[in-house]
Design a protein around this nucleic acid. Sequence first.
DNA 1: TCGGCTTGTTGGCGGGCTGTCAACAAGGGT
DNA 2: ACCCTTGTTGACAGCCCGCCAACAAGCCGA
Lengths: 211, 211
Amino acid sequence: MSVDQGLRRRLEPDARREQILAVAVRLFGERGWAEVSTTDVARDAGVARGLINHYFGTKKDLYLEVIRVMLTVPPSAIAQLPEGDLATRVAAIVDWFLDVVSQHSRSWLAAITAGGMAADAEVAQVVAEAVDGAAASVLAAVGYAGRGDALHAMARSYVGLATSTAREWLERGGLTRAQVHKLLAATLLTMVDQVFPDAVFPDAAFPDAAF
Amino acid sequence: MSVDQGLRRRLEPDARREQILAVAVRLFGERGWAEVSTTDVARDAGVARGLINHYFGTKKDLYLEVIRVMLTVPPSAIAQLPEGDLATRVAAIVDWFLDVVSQHSRSWLAAITAGGMAADAEVAQVVAEAVDGAAASVLAAVGYAGRGDALHAMARSYVGLATSTAREWLERGGLTRAQVHKLLAATLLTMVDQVFPDAVFPDAAFPDAAF
DNA sequence: TCGGCTTGTTGGCGGGCTGTCAACAAGGGT
DNA sequence: ACCCTTGTTGACAGCCCGCCAACAAGCCGA
């Protein structure tokens, strides 16, 4: 593992930083916050421990970067919004979510379940930003983008459902992908039909028009 | 805060243990795992640090007890299952959940959102047991108790939705209780109608009979 | 009342982890 | 070949944790 080849080599700051970050992502993905020490990261990176503080500051700062990396969605599959029927779009957004989660499931799930210290305010904020992004995607897919704070809150709640359901599927193995898909699609349709209309702006009173 | 009155007094083991535990619950509820040291708990309890290890073992062991306390639902409101229509029972179980969460919201939410180190296996198990209990209550309320693992998985997913929605309500304040109630009731009804039937035992083929 | 004994309680030791900083050296520029 | 920038190191101080021998509070029998 630890690629230490005796000699001491100079790397460009970006390269060294990214190398340490990669090691940290791997270690924090395998074990939790308390189980990984900066000494471990330094050893596996073949680097003096002080260098980690030099590049990242605090151990928590390093951890925040790790979580950001874990939650960063590969931009390949984004922005594919099929223009069909509502049910079609719901099925598409659910499939997109399941694809993203299942591909790099371990790191994504580990990070979204608060990674190791959800109580920390900064960690919570990083996770909240990722949830916000997913919620915005959901709202866009169902044609409710930019329609008020309550809708965003409901969309974030739905992302919570999607997350817990995905965990039941990928970690516990108690559900099949088909069951997960049906659950998420049916509940999202229900929310769009029955719950979202009550949450749009009080002044704007066109609850169903997508355009 | 720290009730230190100079002299050193002997307490019965249960009393001392409970006193320390109370202090730990307060501190871990205010701050997270990393921000609370056993020294802090000892100081606020007016006790030597070693005594904590004597009573609880490891700091993590103390933390597990704290989370168990936080997740323990006051047994008052349980076991009230109104025998009415399905929609009535759904509304009742949602109200019950919202009551429980809103009463001691801070500690419950703090603990259920993984309390501080969800990555730890033991902490995850304690939280999972609490989620299992809530899921069982939901299944019992809708008449699907004891009908297979997939159903329990779906119920746990629903508890995830309830948790994230409650957090949007209580912590972020972006939703009203009425909105939360409608969201949770509508989605639960949808799951009972459209999703649960596919998840019952393969051999048992009576998806709708409550009795 | 007083000594003894059980046991709740203390304080310090060793080990480990973290943040900081002055000193060192790798490698390019002149 | 030299120098000088700067990536890199190693050690120091501080804190936290688990452990354990020593201490004493309070009860019991004499």
